[in-house]
């Protein structure tokens, strides 16, 4: 009699794969909006036409443009004017330290955020100067020289003090670009910094209260508290997060989350940070997985040989 097993196997596998394809890839492609990555090219922003002069930029950043009035630049010895909680009370959110901004943010984006923050951050639906709704970061209108040149100078200055782009760590990228809004409790990150291990309960509670105060201002500013991102690498996945930070509006029209303007490299670092928080064991999973699969194949081969031996006398 002819052996039907190969045909049966093909039928079983075909129906299984069909069902899988329908309920997973196909159903999800229908349910979720598909947003293609633009590779962080920021094609809507004007390229810089002038070559910047870092020394001139330094004077502007510290002086006429008053960046340091709101932002700290610890690398240049400029501490923040207020602590995070008071800054949030004034601006809604604590303006990030600019020490490594030149390495983390795209140059075109930096130039645009200086002259028109609401535009660069894609939050013009919330902040419209003509209706008296000013963005908390005051736009730079020029210090008497040619505006484009001055902006290029400041960008050059920020790039000159920042670490080399390949030295940006995942933590650094995350804290700069996302940390002022999103906590990551599994990494002990709060919007006002990493929560230290306190010796006394009293100090720990005092810290928590500061976080709550900060979150209160942030909620008022954003309309809602930005979510804790600890497990977002598992709940949203890399593709969603990457295209979401590239342009939040493409996914969630009208959202209050700004486009943060990171470079493609910095976006990878942010993703890596989120993987370290929510998918900590991914390397172990890959290596253990390989060993277990090798073992399974060996086991199956021995099982096959045993079966052949037992059935020798049965045919």
């Amino acid at each position: 009699m002819k052996n039907k097993e190969p045909l049966i196997l093909v039928v079983v596998v075909a129906f299984t794969l069909l069902t899988y394809w329908l309920v997973e890839p196909y159903a999800h492609s229908v349910m979720h909006k598909h947003v293609e990555s633009q590779n962080f090219a920021y094609a809507d922003l004007k390229p810089l036409t002038k070559t910047g002069n870092a020394a001139a930029g330094k004077d502007l950043v510290m002086g006429a443009a008053a960046c340091t009035g709101c932002h700290s630049i610890e690398k240049a010895g400029m501490p923040s004017a207020m602590d995070a909680v008071s800054a949030a009370a004034s601006y809604g959110v604590n303006p990030p330290d600019l020490s490594n901004a030149g390495a983390i943010y795209d140059a075109k984006f930096l130039a645009d955020v200086i002259v028109n923050p609401a535009h660069a951050l894609k939050v013009e639906h919330k902040f419209d100067a003509s209706k008296g709704k000013m963005h908390p970061m005051a736009p730079f209108a020029g210090a008497g020289g040619e505006l484009e040149q001055e902006v290029a100078d400041m960008v050059a200055y920020l790039q000159s003090i920042a670490v080399k782009p390949d030295q940006v760590t995942p933590k650094m990228a995350y804290e700069n670009a996302c940390g002022r809004c999103h906590s990551v409790s599994y990494e002990k990150w709060t919007q006002i910094g990493e929560k230290p291990a306190f010796k006394f309960e009293k100090d720990s509670l005092a810290f928590d209260i500061k976080v709550l105060e900060y979150q209160e201002s942030l909620t008022k500013y954003m309309g809602k508290l930005p979510p804790d991102l600890s497990m977002y690498i598992r709940s949203r996945g890399e593709h969603f997060i990457s295209t979401f930070i590239e342009n939040p509006q493409a996914h969630l029209e009208g959202t209050a989350m700004p486009r943060v303007g990171v470079t493609a490299d910095a976006a990878h670092k942010v993703i890596e940070y989120l993987e370290d928080a929510g998918d900590t064991k991914r390397h172990e999973r890959a290596s253990v997985g390989k060993m277990v699969l090798i073992f399974s194949v060996v086991f199956a081969i021995f099982a096959l040989l045993w079966k052949k031996q037992v059935w020798k006398n049965l045919h």
Binding site: L293, S296, A303, L304
Partner: peptide
Amino acid sequence: DFMSKDLMVVGFFLIFFFYLVF
């Protein structure tokens, strides 16, 4: 007799199963 065949099928199933797990 039958168990040896069961075990063989289980063997192949486990390759599939652990592929999914990891």
